[in-house]
Design a protein around this nucleic acid. Structure first.
Lengths: 156, 156
DNA sequence: TTGTACTCGACTAGACCAATAAGGAAGGGA
DNA sequence: TCCCTTCCTTATTGGTCTAGTCGAGTACAA
């Protein structure tokens, strides 16, 4: 019942790409890794998965790198998290249909409706948040707390 | 973002104890393990944790075993799951305060309010479901689908 | 005091997580 | 064509977690 570091890194990378989406240029792996403090080699894997899922575009050679494949308002948090983490609350009872047979109670299990309801609630929450929402929120936070922002710049 | 087998076993064991709560007698580890198909040695560990958290009572010697320490209506699903799994969605960003320093953005992080909201939503859902609700639901399911129940009895 | 049942700690195989490493492929400029 | 930059792909690794097993010890009830 947790989110892995990989999932967090994926969100951070997507946020970084969303921030620079307006400028239409590509960000290199190093730029993303440095700004978001993500291990470079690990980020390669993550971006590869994001690209495979059509969430980001890439270009090789000079001036190449990564950028979002869609407008930030058209990509939501759930897409990224489910890609990396799988669906929320997955365990045998909730998976269809191969793993069903492990549990003889599956057809009259009291827990299944509860897990289903919980999963839907999480999915609903996460899919309602787009990356545009997140960068707007980020701008609001940064402009309302300049001291914290400066502290960050000084220590970095 | 998942629930482990241990967490599921804990719920199954608690359900079994809730079912027999009215009879006031103790269930042995073997009875619980057999009825719920939980590995015997693993169940010992789980019941130990449940006892340590005051969710169940135990008695040694002949006629001993386990029973719930409270009425089923006074024990909710969240208590059991958080005991075994820890709080939902725990990762560094959401933990206080020791692990804060790993993330320089913690004080103005766009994700923190989202994780907090999600965690609260999950906790709210799970703490609203008591074990009495679950056994009532179980009785309702079993009485509305006698065929499935019989199948189960025959194969067990 | 004897049998039953709980307690506690040590141990393990396998899966998964987080990350590293390195050679290869492709694109762009000189 | 050559060379530099950048992404692409696969293999590997150390550590941690999961899902248990095993066995000796302790406590209770008849």
């Amino acid at each position: 019942m947790r989110i892995s570091a990989k999932g967090i890194y994926a969100i951070q990378a997507m946020l970084e790409l969303a921030e620079s989406y307006e400028q239409k240029n590509y960000l290199t792996i190093n730029e993303i890794a440095d700004k978001q403090m993500i291990p470079h080699s690990f980020l390669i894997q993550i971006l590869h998965e994001l690209k495979h899922a059509n969430l980001v575009d890439s270009r090789r050679g000079c001036g190449g790198g990564y950028r979002l494949s869609r407008y930030p308002c058209n990509i939501n948090l759930g897409e990224v998290i489910y890609l990396i983490e799988g669906p929320p609350l997955p365990f045998k009872c909730t998976l269809e249909p191969i793993e069903k047979r492990n549990c003889p109670k599956i057809d009259h299990c009291v827990m299944k409706p509860i897990w289903d309801q919980l999963r839907e609630s999480i999915q609903h929450t996460l899919s309602a948040i787009s990356f545009e929402d997140l960068i707007n929120e980020e701008h609001a936070i940064n402009s309302s707390s300049p001291d914290l922002c400066n502290t960050d710049c000084n220590t970095g």
